[in-house]
């Protein structure tokens, strides 16, 4: 990050609003991830399964994020696509302790990547290998291999192991996402 860019960020001149979509299977921790980005006074204390979606707002480096926290329940997964069109980035949350459903995760990911509103755009995808504190959690490398992330050529992606309860690993990931989205915006202008 250049000195000038840092200055701009500091002064809040280049402040932009962007939409990100938070998806993933149910019980992977999407709402918890989004919750930990929020400022201290806005945080929810108890988190229940989302029905439909929630809209949350948070900031990172002068980029105002509007997160569409989608429900991961099987019944509602086909509703994600209604929100693909307007998003600037995707956060894909994976429960790294749930080995059994990793194939389901792969299936949903493939569907998402093949969707006409996604496949033509070069939008950044951030993967959180969540619940890294669990005993039998897979490492982020193993998950990347299992999902075949190395085959994604046309989109920037990044995987980081995280623990949404403590906030470990989240900041690193979201900083990468901010960087990517900012680059995309700069290219457009």
């Amino acid at each position: 990050m250049g000195l000038f860019q840092k200055l701009v960020n500091l002064l809040g001149v280049g402040r932009k609003e962007v939409n990100v979509l938070v998806v993933g299977l149910n019980n992977s921790g999407k709402t918890t991830v989004v919750n930990s980005f929020k400022s201290e006074e806005d945080k929810m204390t108890d988190i229940v399964p989302t029905v439909g979606f929630n809209i949350e707002k948070f900031q990172n480096q002068n980029l105002a994020f509007t997160a569409f926290d989608m429900s991961g329940h099987g019944r509602y997964r086909d509703l994600w696509e209604h929100y693909y069109k307007e998003c600037h980035g995707i956060i894909f949350v994976i429960d790294s302790s749930d080995r059994l459903r990793l194939v389901v995760v792969k299936e949903e990911l493939d569907l998402l990547l093949q969707h006409p509103n996604i496949c033509q755009k070069s939008i950044p995808i951030l993967f959180f290998a969540n619940k890294m504190d669990c005993k039998d959690a897979l490492s982020s490398v193993k998950i990347a291999a299992a999902l075949g992330l190395d085959k994604i050529m046309d989109k920037p992606w990044h995987i980081s192991a995280s623990n949404a309860l403590t906030g470990e690993g989240l900041q690193e990931g979201v900083e990468w996402l901010t960087q990517q989205i900012r680059e995309n915006l700069n290219v457009k202008h």
Binding site: T50, V51, G52, F53, N54, I55, S71, Y76, L79, H82
Partner: peptide, 9 residues
């Protein structure tokens, strides 16, 4: 269709 999408909101 799918109006339940706004349930959580």
């Amino acid at each position: 269709d799918d109006v339940i999408i706004v349930t959580s909101s």
